[in-house]
Design a binder for these strands. Structure first.
Lengths: 246, 246
DNA sequence: CGTGAGTTTGAACCGGATCAATTAAGGTGG
DNA sequence: CCACCTTAATTGATCCGGTTCAAACTCACG
């Protein structure tokens, strides 16, 4: 393999990622256990349900999705993972992965052997703290999605989704208002518990309202404050909307 | 305070809980950092969103629920917590709790100062592993719920809910087939993303099918295999059902 | 080019929400 | 201990948001 390893200290994601707060010898300890396998093409899988858990992964570039599969083959997308985000925590619990992790475009990842990582965590308190933070963040993300699936209507879900993606791109140094969605409408629908057609209709709807501009996967958010308003679940906006738009 | 502290070594939950795999000096290290505040009455809160994160809690007896609250006061129940289950992980991420943790009946908990726990984890590898396992388990639980909210219909959600509760009671040494629900129909509905009336109707429906016997909060599961069949999302059962029941 | 996956839009249908009314069960104070 | 009151649960009737089915369209790619 003739790939040059990107050191954490040189990585532009270092402030979103595990190395946050690490320097010098401690950072080196982390760098030593990181492997960087060759990039994966769209549709390749890092792991399948039941695979033995050995590694945590971090997306370095590209995008991944993780999804659970039921006995009957139905699948529910649990999350989309952008650069700097952790993948594989579902395997910690009982030593086997429960999800599938699949790339959505050409993607490269870092690979962390979990037992080695735990060793370093035992020595480096800052790293321990950082890993725990990322684990907990994953819980919050899931809870956010639970709220969307449990209490929001289609309009609110799609608005929340767009805001979420926009915010995460922004954190990574990209534009918050103009970006390219890495996932299909069908993925979005699966993720949000909606039919493809409903997602598409909501996009059209926002476009009619001149809140976003949509052409296929290219998105321009024209009025982010409006999207935020929509995701507020109270009745206030709903009334306003009726007053202004009907 | 005249409460006698229950040592982990004497606790009947020790094999579900953090002490699993610990003994001797290591167990003692854990016991030393555990506090046991006085029992809480129904409806009391361990913490609110925004409260400074200091403790993880473990339910010792009773039941708790955790829920997120939106800007407009809507709430989504994230989980019900039985004895031996961890509460408070949502606070790790940024140092503040994001949920509310509320008791559903007279409940006592153990209280673990998180920084002290992290110290002990650094020294005791088995404990580190166990905490990570429980954190990951929480992720799996959320993902299970996501699948229910995203892909299951009302019948399947309620069936899955009953099976889940039944199984968790069983793990704690209670009957899997006959138990007392600690939560109201409204809580169940909130949790499953259904209206109270729908939950109630599904209970009646299962009763008509002689799959469960329901009287208020007292539940007897007569045909667990049937509930399991229902939660299988494939079309097979749906066709069978139509053949047999119409 | 042509082919197939992804997307959009329309029309009909249905599962679960909502509204409304009744019943049952704790809980409280006399 | 009982009458009263409040909260929880059940059941029926109606309504609507989102699904499903169907068809046309667009674009990337061999």
């Amino acid at each position: 393999m003739d790939l040059v390893k990107v050191l954490c200290s040189d990585c532009r994601l270092r402030n979103l990622c595990l190395p946050l707060g690490l320097a010098g010898k401690e950072l080196k300890q982390l760098e030593e256990i990181v492997k960087q396998p060759r990039p994966l093409q769209r549709g390749q899988r890092l792991y399948l349900p039941g695979d033995k858990f050995h590694y945590l992964f971090i997306v370095r570039s590209g995008t991944m999705k993780t999804y659970t599969t039921t006995s009957s083959g139905q699948q529910q997308i649990i999350g989309f993972h952008l650069p700097g985000e952790l993948v594989g925590l579902d395997g910690v619990s009982d030593g086997n992965y429960t999800c599938t992790a699949e790339t959505m475009e050409m993607t490269s990842v870092c690979e962390l052997p979990f037992t080695k990582l735990e060793n370093v965590m035992g020595q480096v308190r800052v790293l321990q703290r950082q890993v725990h933070r990322l684990m907990s963040k994953e819980l919050l993300t899931d809870q956010q999605l639970l709220l969307q699936l449990g209490k929001m209507n289609a309009e609110q879900r799609v608005a929340a989704f767009l805001l979420n993606i926009s915010c995460r791109f922004h954190l990574r140094g990209f534009s918050a208002s103009e970006f390219h969605l890495p996932m299909t409408r069908s993925d979005i629908g699966n993720y949000l518990g909606l039919a493809v057609e409903t997602v598409s209709r909501q996009f059209s709807h926002f476009q009619e309202m001149a809140v976003v501009k949509v052409s296929r996967k290219h998105i321009i958010i024209q009025k982010p404050e409006f999207l935020r308003l929509i995701t507020n679940l109270d009745g206030k906006y709903q009334q306003e909307k009726e007053a202004t738009h009907c």
